[in-house]
Nucleic acid binder design. Structure first.
Ligand SMILES: [Mn+2]
Ligand SMILES: [Mn+2]
Ligand SMILES: [Zn+2]
Ligand SMILES: [Zn+2]
Lengths: 134, 134
DNA sequence: CCCCTTAATGAAAGTCGTTGTCATTTCCAT
DNA sequence: ATGGAAATGACAACGACTTTCATTAAGGGG
């Protein structure tokens, strides 16, 4: 999994991968670091930062910015382009797709002569679980 | 303009407002501070930060996050809800609207039981001017 | 297996945008 | 005018993230 990216298989990377594989919600590097510590696997915070950055570049993790600017990561099911509906309270996320919206974005950019266009789109709200827990 | 927001009319706020009124592109607090200094109006950096934050909360300035996380501000023509097509090089922006996309976002959120939903959407590219200047 | 090269780790220090502090200044309602 | 509250700004502090660099440990070649 990690060796196919030309990376060495270290126990730290294994620990991070195992964690993001079972945590479904978006989590920051610091939160992941804390979760690792809680389960006895002590991985340096620097290494967690480096690992999630590497995995994100490789497309293995999705990254989004929370409202406060902190980057949060998550292992997504689909490797295809998609966006997220994210819970502000717990980080729970639903992958969403909007082909029509994608085309609209392309269109708008082209109409104004912009090139090398990318877009960011995230939906934030409170998930049913957190709503119920009020 | 500023008094209608329950704020005192200081020369610093006047200077910042005059600046954002004539700069059409998205600019960071630090960039605005530098521009003020360049034109002889010396306003403290702290005050620039406070002023843009206040104006943004009041809806007088639009804020978006650049890819590096830095907040950039701009005076927009429309007070209505809209998004932006922004040049990565110079900050030039076009206001864009996508009513169909807005409805789609509402729909997706409702379908998944999420409440208090908001969304962020920005289009980034290279504007025609910067493309030409290559 | 055992080296040996080199990638990877991690503690500590540094970066940088942004915010808090607090003494001083300035606005403005009375 | 003048008193009191709001605003300013130099400076320190904050926090997420990165860099540094000495140390550790993969893992391929012998
Ligand atoms: Mn998209
Ligand atoms: Mn919208
Ligand atoms: Zn939730
Ligand atoms: Zn441009």
């Amino acid at each position: 999994m990690v060796t196919s990216l030309g990376l060495r298989a270290t126990k730290q990377r294994a620990a991070v991968l195992a964690l993001v594989d079972e945590v479904a919600d978006f989590r920051s590097a610091q939160e992941l670091h804390e979760l690792l510590r809680a389960r006895g696997e002590s991985v340096g915070l620097t290494t967690v930062y480096r690992t999630v950055a590497t995995l994100a570049e490789a497309g293995e993790l999705d990254v989004i910015r929370r409202a406060d600017g902190e980057s949060v990561y998550r292992r997504c099911g689909s490797g295809a382009h998609h966006h997220h509906l994210v819970c502000r309270d717990c980080g729970a996320a639903v992958e969403v797709e909007g082909p029509a919206m994608e085309r609209w974005a392309e269109r708008v950019a082209a109409d104004h002569g912009y090139s090398q266009v990318a877009h960011t789109l995230e939906l934030f709200g409170v998930c049913p679980v957190c709503s119920a827990a009020k």
